[in-house]
């Protein structure tokens, strides 16, 4: 909106009148502020565009298909997709009820729970990984119990990688869905209830369609965060090709020796995630 020229706004005083009432300076002010906004927009766009350009200009395009065909890259890509999608699925299953509770229930300590939910967004992922180890690791209190009761050990496993990604990704889903639940018009829910719909039917037939954009946006954010996850994954799940080495980890190690390989891997990840996001968006969020 700020970009549209001021003259398009409807009730503008004619020039003479504006000059008489001192509106001339306010028009100049508006013009100057529009220019400032445009400048800020330009800087912001350049800020995102330049690193991408840097990446694309150094990409050895000829090697892209060879790189994609190599087994280590394919297994890393496959692991990245499986782990990030699993993390997104778990985030939806547990995150939507949590968002519901935060948006609709009143209970003591609600703001504390909300702060707890956003903790993984603030804590450095590596520290998050250490925290996961201290809880779910072989010597962690929960990890020891899991091991003794079920024979399950999470560190250095694919399940561990999914757990680490879920830990950092779920907050994005929760806060987006909670915002959707808070801002939706609840009269439709009330109407459904008045007409005798059970709570679950109301949720499924009325609430869910209304918050669908938030849900998809939250899921996409959570998925993107999980896909790029590095710190918590390497700390908690380690780095083993074929088991826990996702693309970001492979990129980090490739940086040790061959920059070109790292760039190629990044571009592959970028292409895959963009394709999925575009497909999803056309299918489910045409208005977004």
């Amino acid at each position: 909106m700020a970009l549209s020229p001021p003259s398009l706004h409807s009730p503008q005083p004619p020039p003479e009148e504006a000059a008489r009432t001192g509106g001339g300076s306010s028009a100049a002010l508006e013009k100057a502020s529009t220019a400032m906004v445009k400048l800020a927009v330009g800087v912001a766009v350049a800020f995102f565009l330049l690193p991408l350009l840097g990446l694309l200009l150094r990409t050895p395009w000829g090697e892209l298909s060879t790189e994609l065909a190599s087994p280590p890259v394919r297994s890393a890509l496959w692991l990245s997709l499986v782990c990030s999608l699993a993390a997104t699925g778990i985030s939806v299953v547990f995150g939507v009820p949590l968002a519901w509770a935060l948006a609709r229930w009143t209970f003591p300590g609600r703001s504390l729970v909300r702060a707890l939910t956003t903790l993984p967004m603030i804590v450095p992922p590596v520290v998050g990984g250490v925290a996961l180890l201290l809880a779910f690791g072989r010597r962690g209190f929960a990890g020891r119990w899991l091991d003794q009761a079920f024979g399950v050990t999470l560190p250095f496993t694919m399940a561990g990688a999914i757990l680490a990604e879920t830990f950092v990704a779920m907050p994005f889903l929760v806060i987006t869905v909670e915002a959707g639940l808070r801002s939706m018009n609840r009269r439709f829910e009330d109407a459904a209830a008045t007409l005798g719909a059970r709570p679950w039917v109301t949720f499924r037939r009325v609430t869910l369609p209304l918050i669908a954009p938030s849900l998809w946006a939250g899921a996409a954010l959570a998925w993107a965060r999980a896909l790029g996850e590095f710190g918590a994954t390497i700390t908690f799940a380690g780095n083993l090709p074929g088991r826990t080495q996702t693309i970001p980890l492979a990129v980090y190690l490739a940086l040790e020796t061959r920059l070109e390989a790292a760039i190629t891997l990044s571009v592959v990840l970028l292409a895959v995630s963009l394709t999925i996001l575009v497909l999803l968006r056309e299918r489910f969020m045409p208005n977004l």
Partner: peptide
């Protein structure tokens, strides 16, 4: 997508950017 959603998404995105340490 309404304003609150967008601001939540923007907040999320900015936090995402912070997560990418150099």
């Amino acid at each position: 997508m309404n304003k609150q959603n967008i601001s939540a998404a923007l907040l999320a995105l900015s936090l995402l950017a912070v997560g990418c340490a150099t």
